[in-house]
Design a protein around this nucleic acid. Structure first.
Lengths: 209, 209
DNA sequence: GACGCATCTGAACGGCGTCAAGATGATCTT
DNA sequence: AAGATCATCTTGACGCCGTTCAGATGCGTC
């Protein structure tokens, strides 16, 4: 009984269990949050036995890594779009920052998995850099466009890091309900994001006052 | 058999199991990291049965909350000290930021518990504010000292939030080994922290260039 | 001395991550 | 076409987890 699927030549028994497991994990993540993401629950959701995933992932962490990788791809895409749509040169950095925080707001569980520090250990968070169109490079190149000196490597990396830290910090705290009154007072959530970024030189080279 | 302890009138059987459990949790946290912090392991470390903690904490989360609260106290103290020791008015914000990140670096597991998003849910992270000498107020008051307009409430809250987000973001990413070469190039870890903060208006009102 | 009650223990339940042994069935060889 | 091969999946088990509940323990009070 072969269901309709884009099965090419890869898999044997199931169709493509690896793909199905990642999809099941993302489905559970969106519906029930990160705490509901047990390996057994993912297998259950995909309709296989609890031991089946071990033929496609070394352990639970490796499945989470695969999910996180899709998250990084989505984030890179979101930043690319935001960068392309921003009008003025000065706006691009702020647009990038807002897009980053909006991505975290719209995919909170996925964002948590991406930054989950209980995995990684040594080698993995290379996604923050080096893949050419990675989110990190998006930020760095936009900084250069906005006038940063591309010759000062250390300074450029520091500025990129500063922007990244600011965006990540805001992304993690933006959902705290202590900021609700601020969001109202300033006229919306994205205005709040923008207002925070205005206090960082990297996001607003000119005086906001 | 009563050991020497500052037992006043509170506890009955053990001495002060609540206190002992928190201490055991912090011991495990420092030695084996957050993943080793199971309720059973804490009870084991404290020398009691797995069910004993339930007479002092509603569930595991409430124990974690108690541990986190001590972390917030420590952080507030660290920021108070840093603020007192900073020399110039302009230096105070940078000193505060560096002290914040150093706290997270020196107590990584505790810091994670403090910001663990799997608990809280609704009401808890009030520690970010309002306790008079809270870390949040330390930052806000220092901003006023550095020249921020205390009359512009919204602006002041935005600036405080911006500083907090930047420090938190850096605190979470400072241990990524991608920054190792930058730390070396710039002459040490704290110089790296300072270098990142220099790209935020809130931390350096005057031009660093 | 007897009672009450907070405190702690022991045993149990379901769920978890993981592994070893066996069943299943698609592909390859002849 | 038939059998061998091998990745794939299932079954069942192990130890650990959080949590609950009935019962033991012993302090404070009357």
């Amino acid at each position: 009984m072969r269901e309709a699927a884009a099965a090419e030549s890869r898999p044997y028994h199931h169709g493509d269990l690896r793909r199905a497991l990642i999809d099941a994990a993302r489905r559970l993540l969106e519906s029930d949050g990160p705490s509901a993401l047990s390996l057994r629950a993912v297998a259950r959701e995909a309709g296989v036995s609890p031991a089946a995933p071990y033929h496609h992932f070394k352990d639970k962490g490796e499945l989470l890594d695969a999910v996180a990788e899709e998250g990084w791809d989505m984030l890179n895409h979101a930043l690319t779009s935001a960068r392309a749509m921003a009008v003025g040169v000065k706006d691009k950095m702020a647009a990038l920052g807002v897009a980053y925080v909006c991505f975290a707001r719209d995919n909170p569980s996925l964002y948590r998995v991406m930054y989950d520090g209980s995995r990684d250990k040594e080698d993995l968070p290379e996604h923050l850099k080096m893949t050419e169109d990675s989110a990190y490079c998006q930020v760095r190149d936009t900084l250069v466009e906005a006038g940063a000196d591309p010759g000062d490597e250390v300074g450029l990396e520091l500025a990129t890091t500063a922007a990244w830290c600011a965006a990540h910090g805001l992304a993690e705290m933006a959902s705290f309900k202590q900021f609700d009154h601020l969001k109202v007072a300033i006229g919306g959530e994205e205005a709040f994001f923008r207002g925070v970024f205005e206090h960082m030189k990297i996001f607003a080279q000119d005086e906001p006052k």
